[in-house]
Write a protein that binds this DNA or RNA. Sequence first.
DNA 1: AAAAATTGGCTCAATATTGGTTCAGGGAGG
DNA 2: CCTCCCTGAACCAATATTGAGCCAATTTTT
Lengths: 223, 223
Amino acid sequence: MPKLVANDIATVLKKRISSGEWIENGRMPPERDLASEFGVARNTVRRAVSFLEEDGTVVRHVGRGTFLTATNPASMAAVVGRMEGTSPADMMEIRQLLEPAAASFAATNASAMELNAVREAHKIACEAQDMPTFEHWDAEFHHRIFACSRNEFLKEIHNLMRILRNQAPWFEMKKRSFSEERRGIYCSEHQTVLDALLRRDPESASQAMLAHLKTVERNLLGR
Amino acid sequence: MPKLVANDIATVLKKRISSGEWIENGRMPPERDLASEFGVARNTVRRAVSFLEEDGTVVRHVGRGTFLTATNPASMAAVVGRMEGTSPADMMEIRQLLEPAAASFAATNASAMELNAVREAHKIACEAQDMPTFEHWDAEFHHRIFACSRNEFLKEIHNLMRILRNQAPWFEMKKRSFSEERRGIYCSEHQTVLDALLRRDPESASQAMLAHLKTVERNLLGR
DNA sequence: AAAAATTGGCTCAATATTGGTTCAGGGAGG
DNA sequence: CCTCCCTGAACCAATATTGAGCCAATTTTT
């Protein structure tokens, strides 16, 4: 059994809360009780609860206790929770909206240094010997294009997509869809995107990215 | 079984990571634990982990541990945190990407009941006597279009945008940009969108929505 | 109303955990 | 013999946890 640290305890607490524990009166047990239950010092529990407090999951009152915040469906936390159930099909649909646009913005706005970073990620991905390394640098290629789109909000949406794609249901799918042949296709498609970026050609960049995402979608969802 | 060397261990670790191990809190076991698990010296594990660090799979912190990049749940919270600083210009840019698409999806996918809900929101907004009421039903009009786009992820992104737009800097901006004349323009543009939806015409719906957002952008950002 | 108990807020020094580094040795293969 | 890699150990530096104590706000009991 791994040692529990504050972060782990925060995770456990979140799970319990989202599974409806303590919901009847919206009140969490006292920190001292949690500490003895988890077998850690009270300070550690305090840090864990602080995390929950920071992201608005709970509110603390001296002398009264720690309370679950009313579950507001429009809260950031709730949105994030629901996003975790995003289906691959839905996400691919949105990727096909956002990534061509990001590529187009990048062709216009990127600095030479940023484009170099994109080129580098592409190069490493092409030369990767194993699937995890390829995976990682493939994702990095896309990420770096968003990074030079000069739209902060777009970048953050992509970060969300990245996180979601690293979660359970996607793993299986990516593993199944991987093959040496497909890797070659992805590399050549990335090359087309990169060339358009280097030519500073927004229209071509957008089209090339869209074409690439269609390929990815076919491979991933088997259509 | 051949003797394990650093490279082999790196491969095993990558496999474990890509199969979702340690994903719940994004933290790898301490090097000393891995060493005893694999039955090798800690130095060897260190070299293996160094490979993962080099290709960016993992980040190490003295005293804290080794963490998977881009997969820790805390990063979700970090993303939405950063989103709070989104500039109106950036968000308008993305709205112009997503809302026309949402309108297009809605024209194809919406049920008659859902379209009725859109129509109702439009009607109440047009008849609204005061700015907060108009504001609310204007937002509701857009929201209900997303609601029938049949893409859960898109809906949640729109929820995020809604939350952000209800925060302080936006509120001021909306107050400044409001006028009776503009309200009339918005209503007639909404009408055009609604008509296209009712005709089940994705292309027109998308175009009408884009035109509307251009107007909003001009008013909001004064361009 | 007063006293006692409960509960979160806070501090601090001691201890434990964890990655970073170095070094002397050993064994396998050229 | 030489080279390369692994072993085992020790120590360092950054960070986290511990355990204890006291305070302040609130609730419960007397």
